[in-house]
Design a binder for these strands. Structure first.
Lengths: 107, 107
DNA sequence: TATTCGATATCGGAAGCCGATATAAGTTTT
DNA sequence: AAAACTTATATCGGCTTCCGATATCGAATA
């Protein structure tokens, strides 16, 4: 992945953003991230999910949905909080160049 | 730093963004980042600058400006390229589509 | 010349990254 | 029904990065 050292932080945010919207599972998010240009192997993603859960950003439950057993993840309150903070920081970061004060005009 | 695992990626981008604007040096960026809520020690920042330079995102030169010797860093072309990509990815992630094609209007 | 100050560099244990490989259980093939 | 394939998750091992604490270095001050 090109520019990985600059973009890798977005992977966790991507995961959280989706998990805040609906329950997601590992294999699905691997494919989803690939669509956005983030190609990562299972050996990268699953430990990442475990860590995010251990830190309290995600909560999981196993479900045998027909054919195979999947572990679904959802964003916790802490996860949503972190996500909102990241959103503000991203705005502040990229808005800084264009606008001086950081405060944006209403549309 | 709270939610560090989610925000740490922004630190490099912050550095690059400033280094794309004007030459910066370590002690200054530590203070600047602190204003944005990113408090990090010299032991964190300096290796980060070295790595960014080694990877080709920054170029540095030493300057004895009066009292002390400082190492100034500027963003390279690769740095600006990575920055622009990160900007696009951030927009894509948070769904902040600027009106139009992504090309900004002149001020 | 001893000391303080600003700035940068190094050290070392802990944690994360990531490709490759393994496990597990259902599904299809022969 | 045994073998092979599929889907999804877990683990392993080495390499790199993270980050607080500490050290170094030159110039100015006393």
């Amino acid at each position: 992945m090109k520019h990985r050292e600059l973009l890798s932080g977005f992977i966790r945010l991507h995961i959280l953003l989706h998990a805040a919207d609906e329950p997601i599972y590992g294999a699905w998010i691997i494919e989803e991230l690939a669509h956005h240009g983030y190609r990562l192997s299972p050996g990268t993603l699953y430990p990442m999910l475990h860590t995010l859960e251990k830190k309290g950003y995600l909560a999981s439950y196993e479900e045998r949905n027909g054919s195979t057993a999947r572990r679904y993840y959802r964003a916790t309150e802490l996860g949503r909080e972190g996500l909102a903070l990241a959103h503000r920081q991203a705005r502040e970061l990229f808005g800084e160049l264009v606008e001086g004060t950081g405060r944006e005009r209403s549309p």
